Simulated assay, not measured.
Amino acid sequence: MTPSPSPFFVSTDWLAANLGAPDLVVVDGTFFMPDENRNAEAEYRAGHIPGAVFFDIDAIADHTVDLPHMLPSPEAFASAMRALGIAETMRLVVYDASGLLGAPRVWWTLRLFGAKDVKILTGGLPKWKAEGRALESGVVGRPPQSFSVQFDAAAVAPAAAVLAASQTGAAQIVDARAAPRFRGETPEPRPGLRSGHIPGSLNVPWREVVDKGEMKAPADVTAAFTQAGVDLAHPIITTCGSGVTAAILLLALETTGKNGIVLYDGSWTEWGGCADLPIAQG
């Protein structure tokens, strides 16, 4: 069995050739923005890549906080993976129904908790469908597996660390939201949040690094960050609205060879909803 050549992605050809391998699990990581009015789980049930399990980031989350899809505890994550039939030693391929939106968040989460081999399907479900490949409906059930968690806490930034970076410049804060939201010119899609950005942060809208549901070439990704004033030689914290598209920027940076990127899980949903945290506009 020929291994995938990319450290981040597999092609639809590769996945089609490897479907059914006993150590391979396909993961549907579909997530839709609040204003899309689409139901990720319902769309998974209606049609998914054969054998794929559904990773629901709103269900596999910390339900003790009033923030959407925050990381669960290691114990809760291990329990969820057992139910999905995923062990940390398996080869995992994540995709989503948008091409490249929810999959990077699931890819990041799986790696964060200790999965050894996680890749993303290039082009996601839209490419798979466009090629006329098989789909199946319903819910996939797999035998329970034991997932041995090794949680990388250093890869997640709490609000206090982001505030310190904002004040000291020890790390660059890069925001994945669209420019009008970053500048505070348009209201946030989630009610009750202030408009603007973390003081001192830089803006690389996630669509600047994605083209037709696929990650742009490393040179184009590098250009997008450098044009926004990001120094790739210095530490970076990625942020966004609720920690999803921040993972797209993190993945994009890793494709350029940048390592050690930290993600602010609470992102603007936490920051913009906390009156004690400073904001900037413009």
Rank of each mutant, 00 (worst) to 15 (best):
D62Y: 06
G273I: 00
A160C: 02
S4C: 02
L249Y: 04
L110W: 08
A233E: 15
S98H: 10
G184I: 12
E214V: 07
F8S: 01
N37M: 10
L249A: 09
A40F: 05
W14Y: 04
I60V: 15
A217V: 12
R133H: 03
L19A: 14
P72I: 01
P7G: 12
E41M: 10
P5N: 06
F31P: 04
L277H: 02
D117F: 07
A275E: 14
V244C: 11
G123M: 09
P104G: 13
I198V: 15
A165C: 04
A17M: 07
P22Y: 07
D62W: 06
A52S: 04
Y264K: 02
T109D: 07
E254R: 14
G85N: 12
A59I: 08
L110A: 05
Y264F: 12
T245K: 08
P72Q: 10
I49D: 07
E36L: 06
V65D: 08
L251M: 07
K116S: 12
M81Y: 02
Q145L: 12
A78K: 00
A165Q: 00
G114N: 05
P143C: 05
N37L: 15
D276M: 05
K127P: 02
G257T: 04
D35I: 00
T222E: 09
F8W: 11
I120Q: 07
G272D: 03
L135E: 04
G141R: 13
G123D: 13
E43T: 12
A170Y: 09
V209P: 09
A164G: 03
Q150A: 15
S242K: 10
W206S: 09
F9A: 05
L121I: 13
D28H: 11
V209G: 10
T89G: 15
L125T: 01
M33S: 14
P104Y: 14
I49N: 08
C274I: 00
S195T: 15
P68M: 09
W271Q: 00
P199V: 10
K212D: 15
D13Y: 05
R91W: 00
D28S: 04
D276F: 02
L263M: 13
L135V: 05
G123K: 11
M70D: 02
W268M: 09
K116W: 02
P144E: 11
P3S: 06
T109I: 00
A115V: 14
S146W: 03
V25K: 14
V174P: 05
R183Y: 11
N18S: 11
F32W: 13
H69V: 00
S6Q: 10
A217C: 01
F182V: 07
T222K: 15
R183Q: 12
S137W: 11
T186I: 13
I60N: 14
S242G: 12
P180Y: 04
G169C: 04
I279G: 01
I236Q: 01
V25M: 12
A52W: 10
A161G: 10
L202A: 04
H48E: 11
G85V: 00
Y44Q: 08
I198K: 03
G184T: 12
I49F: 13
E188M: 03
G124V: 05
S267L: 09
P7T: 03
P3K: 13
P218E: 11
A171F: 07
